[in-house]
Amino acid sequence: MKYNEISNRCDVPVNTLKSWRTRYHWKQVHPQPKRCTKNRKRDAAKIVDELEANNDLTEKQKLFASFICNDLMQRGRI
């Protein structure tokens, strides 16, 4: 709403509204921008290929990482 509309509705001068706004720290509420998640998502096949190509991990570690990857894919996080 604009100052004129509010002042007419409340029978208060416009400058009084402006002074109230600064005195009581009224601010307009802006919606938060949505975060883009496209950049965070990775292709699941690429993750599996990187996992298999990694020679630093043991078989047990690879199995655990693939389990976590599958779980995240089912939840829609990857």
Rank of each mutant, 00 (worst) to 15 (best):
T37L: 09
C36D: 15
Y24K: 15
V48W: 05
T22M: 05
D71A: 15
E52W: 06
R77Y: 12
Q28T: 14
H25T: 14
E50H: 08
L17H: 02
L17D: 02
M73F: 11
R21L: 05
R23E: 14
N8Y: 04
Y24P: 03
T58R: 01
F67N: 13
I6L: 09
Y3L: 07
G76D: 12
M1S: 08
C69G: 03
N15S: 15
M73R: 10
Q28P: 12
Q32I: 11
D11Y: 05
E52H: 08
D11Q: 13
N8W: 01
L72G: 04
M1W: 02
F64I: 06
L57V: 02
K60R: 09
R77W: 10
S66N: 13
W26L: 15
S19H: 10
K27S: 11
R42Q: 12
A65I: 04
V48Q: 06
M73P: 00
C69W: 02
T58E: 02
T37N: 08
T22H: 04
A53M: 11
L63T: 11
P31H: 07
A44K: 14
K34G: 03
K62I: 00
E52S: 10
A65C: 12
S66I: 14
T37Q: 05
I78E: 00
F64T: 12
T58A: 03
R40G: 05
K2G: 08
K60T: 08
C69I: 10
D49L: 15
S19P: 00
N55M: 13
D56Q: 13
P31K: 12
T22R: 07
V29T: 10
R35Q: 01
K34H: 08
G76Y: 08
H25I: 09
L57H: 02
K60Y: 05
K62F: 00
E50D: 13
V14A: 05
M1V: 08
T58W: 01
K2N: 11
V48H: 07
I78H: 01
M1I: 11
D43Y: 01
S66K: 15
C10S: 03
N15L: 09
H25Y: 12
K41M: 06
A44T: 05
K38L: 12
R75V: 02
H25A: 15
K41L: 07
I68F: 04
K34M: 06
K2L: 08
A65F: 04
S66C: 11
D11I: 04
K60C: 01
R21F: 02
W20E: 02
K27Q: 11
K34W: 07
Y24M: 13
K18I: 13
M73D: 11
P33S: 00
M1R: 06
V12A: 06
Q74K: 14
M1D: 08
N15V: 14
R77C: 10
D71Q: 14
S19K: 12
V14W: 02
N39A: 14
Q32E: 09
R40Q: 06
K46H: 07
T37P: 03
I68R: 09
